[in-house]
Structures are given as C-alpha cells and as structure tokens.
C-alpha cells in the first residue's frame, strides 16, 4: 500500500503561499533594493530535517516554479538553488541536524546557501566577462544573503527547541 509521508509533502503545500508572499509583500521590506529570499530559508529548513535528497528534489521543483512565474530565465533558479542545497546537504545528519535549526547555526547555514544561490544565479543569468566578480559576489551574493540570514533568525527563534547542541 502506498504510504504518503505528510512531513515530506507539507513543504510543497507551504511553498505556494510563500511564493505569493515573496512576490507581493516582501518587496515592501526591501533595503536598497535587497530583499530576503523566503524560498531558500524553507529549503534549508526542510533539508536539515528531511535530508539532502529531498532538498535537491524540492530545490529543483521550487526553482522551476519560481522561474516560471517570476519571469526569470527558465532553469536559472532551478540550477543555482539545487547546487546551493546540495552543499547544504553536507550539514544533514539524521536526528542531529534538526537541532541546528533552533540555534544560530541555522542563520549561518542560510547565509551560506543564499550566497551560493544568488552568486550562481547572477553568473548564470547575468554573466558579463567585463564585470568584477568580487563586486558581483558582494552585491548579489553576500548582501542579500545577510538580509535573508537576518530573517531566518526569526525561524531559529520560533522553532521549537528539542535539545541544545
């Protein structure tokens, strides 16, 4: 008999309202044109809970949907997000990594994921041989990632603590 694991389905149900929020409400809280990426926070959160394989599949699907509805080049977010989540998968350890979520480690992991994602996207979609790679990394990678990390702090605070690290 086919068993449906609700824990693995739930993030997909959560993503659509989150995407609407990302495209309609989140631009209101921009700082100098920089906005937090809620999608990457959710992906990191559930990758730490459900594992790298789940994270990779979800990153690809979420990225594809985002590209479709946002007007980006189809496949760009899909690729950058999947590679970012692949690296985040190294932090996954069964029964252990979930503890990261309610600690400051989560913020650091989100910043890492968001930096990789944004930087790779700008390389894929906006590649310009004459542009300064360091500036691209800083402006398009690190700055938005810091803001995303700041927002992910709320998730870390609100996430129920099971045991300390």
């Amino acid at each position: 008999m086919l068993r449906i694991d609700f824990a693995k389905i739930f993030p997909y149900l959560l993503y659509i309202p989150l995407l609407i929020l990302q495209l309609t409400v989140i631009p209101i809280i921009r700082i100098e044109g920089i906005i937090p990426d809620l999608g990457i926070i959710i992906l990191v959160l559930f990758t730490l809970r459900l594992g790298r394989l789940w994270g990779l599949t979800a990153a690809a699907i979420f990225g594809f949907v985002f590209d479709m509805v946002s007007g980006s080049a189809v496949g760009a977010t899909m690729l950058s997000q999947s590679i970012a989540i692949f690296f985040i998968g190294f932090f996954y350890k069964d029964q252990v990594s979930e503890r990261y979520i309610s600690s400051y480690y989560f913020v650091l992991i989100v910043i890492l994921a968001a930096t990789i994602n944004s930087f790779l996207f700008s390389l894929i979609a906006d590649f310009d041989a004459s542009s300064n790679l360091f500036m691209t990394l800083f402006r398009q990678g690190i700055l938005p990632a810091m803001y995303t990390g700041l927002v992910s702090g709320f998730v870390a605070v609100l996430y129920p603590k099971r045991s300390s690290l």
Binding site: L53, A73, V74, G75, M78, S82
Partner: peptide, 21 residues
C-alpha cells in the same frame, strides 16, 4: 551515489531548459 546522480540530472535538465527558453 543517488544524491550525485540526482544533482547531475537536475543540472542537465536545467541547462536543457535554459537553452530552450
């Protein structure tokens, strides 16, 4: 190698989609 196989598949599909925009 399932995670690597999945990543490789995603990369190939993404690149395919990028070229078919």
């Amino acid at each position: 190698f399932k995670e690597y196989i999945v990543l490789l598949t995603i990369i190939l599909v993404s690149l395919g989609l990028l070229s078919q925009n």
